[in-house]
Design a binder for these strands. Structure first.
Lengths: 200, 200, 200, 200
DNA sequence: CATGAATGAGGCTTCATTCAT
DNA sequence: AATGAATGAAGCCTCATTCAT
């Protein structure tokens, strides 16, 4: 079992990194949030960078595991994609801080950001595999699985984040949870039926 | 010319901000890239923050104008959405630096980031209007135009950015331009037909 | 006749120097207050330092002239000291900004401050001469004219300044002018009768 | 010892602030004078301003305590005023740096300077109380205790400071200490007997 | 004479990291 | 294992001064 303090620090670090971004996040704040001395962080992590990378690896691993589990219980690619969208939305909402990190800290040129994107690519591959299997079985009609996987990931992520920030801004007490059905519905409609009216 | 230096600084700032992110970007680097003294930047902009905000306002304004123009030449919402996706992809590729800023610097809690999102919301509203008009004309089948607008924006943005970083990483000389058709095609397929095979 | 702009700049500079102190005073502020461009100041004065020195010379010259004039109309040293106290209080109130400069900017180790004190010493000498003449005529009873001159200057200056700042702080509309009699009376009583009750 | 460094920094700061004034004083110089790294100062004090305020609070507290002690051993207001003048001169000479700060940095409009004057007012109140008690007992003849308190403070402070700078300027090795009797005598004569010859 | 855009040296402050306890 | 005082490199910003117009 990992050392108890490591977890405490992890918890605190996600909070602080998500609130302030990597650069603005201060080791002091993380230490205070974790209730440990600053030195203690350096006893367990070589540097701020390493702490961040550890954090993000852990988080992305959990996202990918979560996605895998939700996929595993279905056979058809269509059902799997549906389940993945469902899982993605729920995970991003239950792990709001991590979700913010994904959009905030994954698209730069720094080493840690490239590592972040490497993890994201793992996740994208997962999506891509579903799409490709669907192409093979004839369930899906598409020609560019890689680009489409990005579209799925981008759409699902931005829908949730945009909603979170939207509610935060208006200071409404309305919980994001109440909006889950609308978000999932929108995403599933888009990716399954498209927007145009096929009945005509 | 009155604002000769201001433009030079703007150009340099986009480069540096996009390469390093707001926090890592050094005013020294921007000055050097612009070929002016550091003080000159402060003669024209009150602070790093203001320079950034001016930059992103200008950039988002251009994106929104570009989108508006591409929409204006079409009547049906379906054609307009198609044109918007097309314009978005082209704009993000031609303004790669700004595109990176959107995903890097727009989703935090800082004041400047909220201003950034306010501008993005303007753009989202543009998309949402198209969707709503389509709902009224019966061309579009959807229930949550706001969420769906986020999905459109997220999908289109991430598809392009992911492609850009992907090519950068492998150091291939393959130009992003060559991938434009695949990206646009993927997006249009998703949002128009959806992924599932309706022929069945 | 001196150039018109020089006076305008002088006026503005006293204000700004008095409000902010030499170091915090910005040439920009002086220029704006004077309604001229910054370059114009440098056309007339070699540097901030020189502007300050010119200013203070001019101001101290006026104080000394004012004191001399008030002394000239009296013959006895006692009457002269009385007149000088009177003149000092009035001058400090009518030239509040200069008065502030005296206490703010005259007691440091910088070159300009030593020049300032040299001017003040001129003024102190004037006081000292009165005291010495009084010693000779037997009107005054004192042994250390130099130290006593400092006491006169210090008492008179601080009484006025302390009053000015006192009224400023409480934001009262009460004019300093209304307090002139009390201030002059206090000073004259101290230096003429002392505080102890001689009637006993 | 817990606050070892804080004291060292305090000592160094008084020196540097007194020599250069608040604005010209460089944190680098204070750090060097204290023999600590610049960061160490900021570990203990939030800013240059706070360091200064802490310093002057401490200094004025010591001056006021010193005055109180010298007063406490006497009963009659006259004896008390005499003792206070004596104590003031000695304190200003033994704490020359602080004395310079009083005249250099207490009479501006900045927040820190107003705090400084608030402390000075505490001291002035002490003087004023003596004067008022003397008025009640009939020992003192005066009508404006507040203005007179300013006169006492101003006279005593300027007498000492003027002497210090005077000796510094002529580079004489003559110690200020040798002039103490002359200064105290002048002040006591002024405030007790006044300057005019009452024998006539 | 007057202007004001441009400069760049210099200062305050921050904060990741270290290390003696 | 844990602490937190100390460090110093690095960055943002200010502003007196210059100079081409």
């Amino acid at each position: 079992m990992r050392h108890e303090k490591v977890d405490v620090i992890f918890q605190a670090a996600v909070q602080v990194f998500a609130e302030s971004g990597f650069d603005q996040a201060k080791m002091d704040d993380i230490a205070q949030a974790a209730g440990v001395a600053k030195g203690t962080i350096y006893y367990h992590f070589k540097s701020k960078e390493e702490l961040f990378v550890g954090l993000m690896n852990e988080g992305m691993k959990r996202l990918i595991d979560c996605a895998r589990r939700s996929i595993a219980v279905h056979d058809s690619p269509a059902e799997q994609l549906k389940a993945l969208l469902h899982a993605h939305v729920h995970f991003f909402i239950q792990n709001e801080k991590l979700a913010k990190l994904v959009l905030n800290e994954a698209f730069g040129t720094k080493e840690r950001q490239q590592q972040f994107r490497a993890k994201i690519r793992e996740y994208l591959n997962l999506i891509q595999e579903i799409l490709q299997k669907g192409m093979e079985t004839g369930e899906f009609q598409l020609e560019h699985p890689q680009e489409t996987a990005s579209a799925v990931f981008g759409a699902a992520s931005v829908v949730v984040l945009q909603k979170i920030y939207s509610l935060e801004q208006y200071g409404t007490q309305a919980s994001v949870e109440a909006k889950i059905p609308a978000m999932i519905d929108s995403l599933q409609r888009v990716f399954f039926s498209g927007l145009t009216n096929h009945k005509t």
